[in-house]
């Protein structure tokens, strides 16, 4: 991989770790707080949140501030 491909590789890594893999817990709470991460791959994050809500509609998946933390 060349250095020019690194953002693509990192984006793929984020996508896989956040949006793939087995779900065992009924309490998946991912707080979204890292601005660099949001800038890098906002769509992946939104997709992960959407997936979590679809799987567990009763579980809150919200940023810290919205959770009152």
């Amino acid at each position: 991989m060349s250095a020019a491909d690194e953002p693509l590789v990192l984006s793929d890594l984020i996508s896989r770790v956040l949006d793939k893999g087995v779900v065992l817990s009924g309490d998946v709470v991912i707080s979204i707080a890292d601005i660099d991460l949001i800038k890098l791959e906002l769509r992946v994050l939104l997709s992960a949140v959407e997936t979590a809500i679809r799987r567990e509609p009763h579980v809150p998946v919200l940023p810290d501030r919205a959770r009152g933390a």
Partner: peptide, 15 residues
């Protein structure tokens, strides 16, 4: 904490 912030560092650590 049970609430885990999604940062690049933590995502790399998980992987």
């Amino acid at each position: 904490s049970r609430s885990v912030k999604a940062t690049v560092e933590r995502i790399r650590a998980h992987d």
